[in-house]
């Protein structure tokens, strides 16, 4: 039986690890390569790097980070942030990324998803969606809206419609990131995650809000997510990846327990 995955997300700015609360007030919390190695040794199933570097002239720093990590971490490595073209995707793949996450640029130009899918394979293209709860309306029947530019710009796009369109265009996986839950440590947005997971036939990664091991269990069962993304709760040492997996295992969630 397929295991549920625990994925750690590392936000990287100018080559250093950063963590934001509700997408603002980022602060430096360490070396991404060191953290990646630590989580790998603790049994992490997959790693996501999100490049939040503001200036484009510092973008190559990310390639170095990916390259260093790929030399010693032998689990799938996914990279997102600022990917606007097949060339960006290919450069990151050569540096050692397995999967590519597209987000804002795909909302502005949806063909980016199909272009990347035909260049590197559907299974390697992850559509990452930042989503906020809104009033249900004719334009946004799901009651959730897509937000871009690191959570700053509402698009008016309905989250469910965008997820389905993304799948249609060739995305191999979805990251469902709740802006409302992000950084709160109060738990994932279960309803949103379940709604999207039931609507698509590609894996769904739940993101935003994890603070306790129980939150992962909830989103992987009730929320029907295939994977749970964690950040703060492991970055600050509140929990180790191993503790999270042990909790899930003991509470009936199938996870990989030997590494």
């Amino acid at each position: 039986m397929l295991s549920k995955r625990v994925i750690a997300c590392l936000d990287v700015r100018d080559g250093r690890l950063a963590k934001s609360v509700k997408f603002v007030n980022t602060k430096d919390i360490g070396d991404p390569v060191e953290k990646a190695r630590l989580y790998y040794e603790q049994g992490l199933d997959e790693l996501v790097f999100y490049d939040i570097t503001a200036s484009s002239d510092k973008r190559n720093i990310m390639l170095d980070v990916v390259e260093s990590v790929a030399k010693e971490v032998f689990i799938p490595l996914s990279v997102g942030g600022g990917i606007r073209s097949v060339q960006d995707a290919t450069n990151l793949r050569l540096a050692g990324a397995e999967k590519i996450n597209v987000n804002s640029a795909a909302v502005l130009r949806p063909e980016l998803i199909s272009e990347c899918a035909s260049a590197i394979g559907n299974q390697n293209v992850v559509l990452s969606m930042d989503i906020q709860k809104v009033e249900q309306s004719e334009e946004r029947p799901s009651g959730y809206e897509i937000v871009i530019n690191g959570g700053r710009t509402p698009t008016g796009l309905d989250a469910l419609q965008w997820a389905l369109e993304g799948e249609q265009l060739g995305a191999g996986e979805l990251v469902v990131n709740s802006i409302d839950a992000d950084g709160t440590l109060d738990g994932y947005e279960i309803n949103l995650t379940r709604m999207l997971s039931e609507a698509v036939r590609i894996p769904v990664i739940a993101s935003g809000g994890a603070g306790k091991p129980q939150h992962l269990q909830e989103v992987l069962t009730e929320g029907k997510a295939d994977a749970a993304l964690v950040a703060s709760m492991v970055h600050y040492g509140t929990y180790t990846v191993e503790e999270l997996k042990k909790y899930l295992h003991e509470n009936g969630v199938k996870v990989r327990m030997s590494w």
Binding site: M1, L2, S3, K4, R5, D45, Q123, G172, E173, R201, I202, P203, K224, D226, A227, R256
Partner: peptide, 13 residues
């Protein structure tokens, strides 16, 4: 089972 996704992606025993 429609809840099982194809491709089969992830860790398996």
């Amino acid at each position: 089972d429609l809840s099982l996704k194809v491709p089969h992606m992830g860790w398996n025993e």
